[in-house]
Design a binder for these strands. Structure first.
Lengths: 218, 218
DNA sequence: GTCTATACTTGGATAGAC
DNA sequence: GTCTATCCAAGTATAGAC
């Protein structure tokens, strides 16, 4: 369990959450894996400890409760996704580029089960107000990020009159989330993928009626 | 618990599921209520029995297992929604009428918690293959229904070239599902509603570029 | 068809040894 | 910081009286 190369979490000048290391990280990873394979209902302290090969009591020592641990899982996922995509997302200047990026992200999400885990936490959060608020707070940055991108992307476009960027952003996130969830129910049909292809085709139309701007301009 | 006016389920000439009555119905309603307020993870035999004021053992006598009972809840919901909306849905001939109907259905779903319950079952089904297949089978009719409507609605429209009706139908159902789920996470923001308003505005555009046809024509 | 009682398993959480 | 041992609440499911 112990990893000798891991010093205790070093002091950090940055505000906000720090990526956990050592044992805490191992526990979070085990929880992620369990949440993914067993769901929210099956993510018990014992199941997580079994999956990670460590003692059940460690969860309560390091996180206080199973719930806190599961929220730490969401934090880890959020940080990793942000780190992996924020730059590419910022750099995408056309709808077509964004559609291509969405395909890449979706492939990752499928492989890592990120949205599956998020979905389990959303399901848990709907019937548990406090948990729900925490989960919502962890989704919010993604909606905001999409909203800002839409605002810049549609500046000067006739499409801008259609809807508030915030509503569009919420809709896109909800669509992505819903399609991933429903897509997992039966393996064979692979329908989220056909939606991404549709997005690619639509992006061409959107770019066609939207004025281009110099790359990187905000 | 017993309801003297309920004869044992009468023989039926119809194929397919029959709406349960008497004790079975009471148990299903209690399970629906519990699933809604406690979620999939909290919908135990004991919790359901407590909510309905009957004995826990009855669940196993009538349904064999908690899982079967929860599937019966989905069946009941599906039947009720179908009965309530199938006629109005069939009769809607324009995108605008469909958008208005969607608003009505959404108001009902919110009040009854239907999508909340569905979401909990989807979350359960993602990590349980057998359950997932059963849940998927109960969502399928709704996708098909939307698909057929789209096919007829877009006949002769330039929009028909954009995407396969099946993909659009899956996308609309996924969007509706995802927006409802995420919308429940934090009470205040009420964002699914703004999406429905967006749908209303879009429906006007869609109808404008789509040839009208005589009412009721398929 | 319904209830009581019970067997057995699993869960969250903690105390205290190491 | 980690492990063993344990308490106690809650879970599924069944047997058998009524």
């Amino acid at each position: 369990m112990r990893n000798p190369s891991d010093a205790p979490t070093p002091p950090s000048d940055e505000l906000g959450p720090v990526e956990p290391t050592g044992t805490k990280l191992q526990i979070i990873e085990a929880a992620l894996s369990t949440l993914r394979s067993e769901g929210y209902a099956g993510a018990s302290a014992r199941a997580i400890a079994r999956s990670g090969g460590f003692n059940q009591a460690l969860i309560f020592y390091h996180f206080g409760s199973v719930r806190n641990l599961l929220l730490a899982v969401l934090d880890l996922i959020s940080q990793r996704r942000m780190q992996a995509y924020a730059a590419a997302f910022e750099g995408a200047d056309t709808a077509a580029e964004l559609a291509a990026l969405a395909q890449r992200i979706h492939a990752d999400d499928l492989r890592q089960g990120y949205i599956t885990v998020l979905g389990e936490m959303v399901a848990g959060g709907i019937t548990d107000g406090e948990l729900g608020a925490e989960v919502a707070a962890r989704i919010e940055p993604w909606i905001t990020m999409v909203e800002h991108k839409i605002t810049r992307l549609l500046r000067g476009s006739p499409l801008a009159a259609l809807a508030a960027p915030r509503d569009l952003a919420f809709g896109l996130v909800a669509l992505y989330f819903g399609a991933d969830m429903l897509g997992h129910l039966q393996r064979d049909q692979a329908r989220p993928e056909s939606l991404l292809q549709l997005a690619t085709r639509l992006s061409v139309l959107i770019d066609a009626i939207t004025p281009a701007r110099p790359r990187g301009q905000t």
